[in-house]
């Protein structure tokens, strides 16, 4: 036993930060169950959180990849919004569902390709490029339509209405004795599959490991024979692709396009990644952490609502507070580690 323990490697920065996030999420959720009870005791609470945030989870995965590679993409929310609007309009014009999916992915990929090219091959600062991308996508959304577009496409609505996966054994009993099954939207399944795929890509994919190498030390990555430009380009392409999927999942959730869709999503995604232990400097991070980052952000909002802080400002103030807590914690933890290493 002792030998076994001895052979275990110390936690890497990525693992440490992720463990902290998961730990704090669990503590937060258990505290909420004990102190607030109510909805938190039902499995449906977690499913609600997933249902509302499936597209945020997908976008955050893409952003995590970019951030691990040492970049940033602030266009993801706007691209999601543009995809939602375009697909809604296309479907309302009697489009085909399959083509609408291709349209979503196509738009996402187009943004990824162009932004990736500008950033990697023309060496323009990612912040500016993706800021322009964000402006462009937001502008295009309103050019397409300023008015909300409710999807009337029959086939899609069927999909939308029957999209829940009902899980009986996780349901809860209502006073009259019936069991209301827990409901999970189809988008959540997509999101979870994407989390797993991205996790595997980052852990076992050659490309994924190249992202870490590039983010850890770009010069070293180059010396080790990695094609840094291509790797960076691909990180943005994947991120754009995921934004496209995220947009379609968003549309499946709301079945309506709206110019203000996914407003502020980019910052939520960045916040989730950071809480999940991804460093903006690159080389450190994990999508599992990001997933729990999204869940932590949502949980704190739910807690604020449940604990009767009904004034509209408390949600974002507590979110900001939590963000501050995590950022400081990470800074202190990593700082202490660094010091110990130097000794």
């Amino acid at each position: 036993m002792k030998n076994l323990l001895k052979r275990k490697e110390p936690l890497t920065d990525t693992q440490l930060l992720m463990t902290i996030t998961i730990g704090i999420f669990c503590i937060m959720y258990i505290l909420a169950m004990v102190l607030l009870g109510g909805g938190f005791l039902r499995a449906q609470q977690i499913f609600d959180m997933l249902n509302d945030n499936a597209s945020l989870i997908i976008v955050s995965c893409g952003l995590t990849i970019v951030m691990i590679g040492g970049g940033i993409d602030i266009s993801v929310g706007a691209v999601t919004s543009l995809v939602v609007m375009s697909c809604a309009i296309y479907l309302n014009k009697g489009g085909n569902i399959f083509v609408s999916v291709l349209l979503a992915i196509g738009i996402g990929l187009a943004f990824g390709l162009v932004q990736g090219f500008l950033i990697s091959y023309l060496e323009i600062q990612p912040f500016i490029v993706t800021l322009a991308g964000m402006f462009f996508a937001r502008g295009m959304t309103t050019i397409l339509s300023v008015d909300p577009q409710k999807v009337t496409h029959k086939g899609f609505l069927n999909l939308h209405n029957n999209k829940e996966i009902r899980i009986r054994w996780l349901g809860h009993r209502v006073p009259n004795g019936n069991i209301i099954p827990a409901e999970m939207e189809f988008g959540v399944v997509i999101a979870l599959i994407i989390v797993i795929i991205v996790f595997l890509l980052l852990k076992f994919g050659r490309l994924g490991r190249n992202f870490y190498a590039m983010g850890g030390n770009q010069q070293s990555a180059l010396m080790l024979g990695i094609n840094v430009k291509k790797t960076r380009f691909l990180s943005y392409v994947i991120c754009g692709f995921l934004s496209g999927i995220s947009g379609y999942v968003f549309l499946m959730h709301t079945a309506a396009g709206n110019a203000t869709n996914a407003a502020g999503m980019e910052m939520n995604a960045i916040a989730s990644s950071i809480i999940g232990g991804t460093l903006l400097t690159g080389g450190v991070g994990n999508v599992i952490g990001t997933f729990f980052g999204v869940m932590s952000l949502t949980t704190i909002k739910k807690i604020v609502v449940s604990s009767g802080l009904n004034d509209p400002w408390w949600q974002s103030i507590t979110t900001g507070g939590m963000l501050c807590f995590f950022i400081l914690l990470q800074s202190v933890v990593l700082g202490r580690r660094q010091k110990r290493k130097n000794k």
Partner: peptide
């Protein structure tokens, strides 16, 4: 030193070399 400090020893030995798309750690 021009290796990546955030990767493991074995990864540093094999990264950037010709290999398949999937890595068997």
């Amino acid at each position: 030193i021009t290796l990546c400090p955030n990767l493991t020893v074995s990864e540093n030995m094999f990264i950037g070399r010709k290999s398949g798309f999937v890595i068997r750690h």
